[in-house]
Amino acid sequence: MSEHRRHHRPAPRESAFFDEHAEGADPALLTEAAERAAVLLVRGARASEDAGVSDRLVHLADTEGIEAIAALWSHAAADSLAGCLWRLYLLRSGVYADPAGIARQFEAGRARAEFARVVAGVAEPPGPDELRTMVDEVLRGIAHGDFADVLLRAAAFARVVAAGRAALHEVADADVRRMLVLAEQLEAAGHLELSRGLA
């Protein structure tokens, strides 16, 4: 065998190369951790006897930590606990990002989705503060209420907002459809929770 064709051992890489890859997060483990967090938030919070759990849930939604978990929830199926929490997170984030705009859309949608308006449980008239309060109460319901009720109330709220967006023509049709799809997904998940429980 010629000298230049002889097998050579590969040159060792610097240890930094291995350190960099050893610290990389396994996507499957991240997904599993996000799903476990969702189960703990929903099932664990409801089983807790600590009266402050609901307030901590609302506070958690205001911190950066929940955003990191929520980003992992974004890939979860709509009929899973993680997927439902992602959709609730989106709804709350939208209300806090533009409370006046959402209040205007909710007001415009009330006549078009009367039943949903009642189910949503927003105080009259629905101003920005009332909407923020309602969304926070939905999150508190995760800790102390029936999770199916939480999902159905959120779905009703989203349905009224979608109707208002359609009436006002303030946003693109795609945004109206997205809100309507969100409402439908939350409603379907609420019925699944009632029938067999989400996982």
Rank of each mutant, 00 (worst) to 15 (best):
S2D: 15
S2K: 12
H8S: 15
R9P: 07
A11D: 11
A11T: 13
R13P: 07
E14C: 14
E14R: 14
F17M: 08
F18N: 06
D19S: 15
E20K: 11
E20M: 09
E20V: 00
P27H: 10
L30H: 08
A37G: 14
V39P: 00
G44E: 00
A45L: 05
R46M: 09
S48A: 15
S48D: 06
D50L: 13
D50C: 11
A51E: 14
A51I: 09
G52N: 10
V53F: 00
S54P: 09
S54A: 15
S54R: 12
D55Y: 00
L57F: 05
V58S: 06
V58C: 05
L60C: 11
I66C: 12
I69A: 15
A70K: 05
L72Y: 00
H75F: 11
A76S: 15
G83V: 05
G83N: 02
C84R: 04
Y89R: 06
R92C: 06
R92Y: 06
G94Q: 10
A100C: 04
A100V: 14
A100W: 00
G101D: 08
R104I: 02
R104K: 07
Q105I: 00
G109S: 03
R110D: 03
A111C: 05
A111K: 04
E114R: 01
V118K: 02
V119Q: 01
V119C: 01
A120P: 02
G121D: 01
G121W: 00
V122Y: 06
V122C: 07
A123M: 01
A123G: 10
A123N: 03
G127K: 11
G127R: 08
P128L: 11
D129L: 13
L131T: 05
R132G: 14
T133L: 13
T133H: 09
M134W: 00
V135S: 09
V138N: 03
R140F: 08
G141E: 01
G141V: 03
I142L: 13
I142K: 08
G145Q: 04
F147H: 09
D149G: 08
R153I: 03
A154I: 06
A154F: 00
A154H: 01
A155S: 12
F157T: 07
R159Q: 04
G164S: 11
R165V: 02
L168D: 12
V171F: 02
D173F: 06
D173E: 14
A174T: 10
D175K: 05
R178S: 14
R178K: 12
L180Q: 15
L182I: 05
L186R: 12
L186H: 09
L186E: 06
E187H: 03
G190D: 08
H191C: 04
L192N: 06
L192V: 10
E193V: 06
L194S: 13
L198W: 05
L198A: 15
